[in-house]
């Protein structure tokens, strides 16, 4: 982790009619940091993340991703980020190798690197015997690990993970976080949303979103001190219990 700012937002807002999904989001994320983005369902996490990835245009405010402007330099941003969505989204009717080759291909990973990187990735994931199996036949935990590896396959500066561990068992989740740490060690910035408060403890810093606003932003340790709570669970409860918004209002 360095002091170089890779994500910088200033009053970033997304409004759908009268409904303000994300309100004046202002934050800075440093290179190599694991940045946790927490909040109840409907708090505006996914909306905020989508703006940062270029999937959705902000209503107002400004932001730079990897030094590139979110409005004008989306093409540049796209080359420098990886993304893993809430839904598992690799091609289930393609094999493990074909998926990796495909995503490597559309990100323009050069052919000569492609083979070597694929080989080492398969080895790291321990998927050697599954390399030619259809992704649809893998267990969910492996799929998620594969999806993450694919998201960082082109060696982006920043990777956005939208609830990456939903529905995954604790052991696999642990392994998943090992992958995240590895990526962070390589200097990749991790921007991750999650519901699991134990995962929040793994982050370098976390924000708490409530009703579209950022209510807290600090290291897990300091947040616990600030709210004199024993765990992130308590911090979350303290902040989120007054939330008016629920998922069904979205």
């Amino acid at each position: 982790m360095t002091n170089e700012v890779v994500i910088k937002t200033d009053k970033l807002t997304k409004q759908y009619g009268d409904f303000v999904a994300a309100n004046q989001i202002t934050l800075e994320v440093y290179q190599g940091e694991i940045f946790g983005f927490l909040g109840a369902n409907g708090a505006g996490k996914t909306t905020a993340m989508r703006m940062l990835c270029g999937l959705s245009t902000p209503s107002s405010g400004s932001a730079t991703i990897g030094g590139f402007d979110i409005y004008k330099e989306t093409e540049q941003i796209k080359k420098n980020i990886g993304y893993m969505s809430q839904k598992f989204s690799l091609y289930e009717d393609l094999t493990v190798m074909e998926n990796i080759r495909f995503f490597g291909g559309i990100y323009g990973v050069p052919d000569k690197d492609l083979k070597e990187r694929m080989r080492s990735l398969i080895e790291t994931l321990g998927l050697k015997s599954e390399a030619d199996k259809l992704v649809g036949s893998l267990p969910l935990g492996w799929k998620q690990k594969l999806a993450f590896s694919v998201a960082i396959f082109h060696e982006p500066k920043i990777v956005f993970l939208d609830e990456p561990t939903g529905g995954v068992d604790p052991v696999t989740r642990r392994q998943f976080w090992d992958l995240i740490y590895d990526a962070s060690d390589k200097g990749i910035t991790i921007f991750v949303t999650t519901h699991y408060m134990d995962e929040a403890e793994y982050c370098n810093r976390v924000t708490m979103m409530v009703d579209g606003y950022i209510k807290a932003l600090d290291t897990p340790y300091k947040l616990k001190q600030q709210f004199s709570a024993d765990s992130m669970d308590d911090v979350f409860y303290e902040l989120a219990r007054n939330a008016k918004r629920r998922e069904d209002q979205l």
């Binding site: 990835c53 796209k78 993304y83 969505s85 598992f88 989204s89 091609y91 995503f103």
Partner: peptide
């Protein structure tokens, strides 16, 4: 439907 469109839209493709 499967969400892969999001991945494609995030990519520089």
């Amino acid at each position: 439907e499967t969400g892969t469109m999001e991945l494609l839209l995030v990519s520089p493709f």
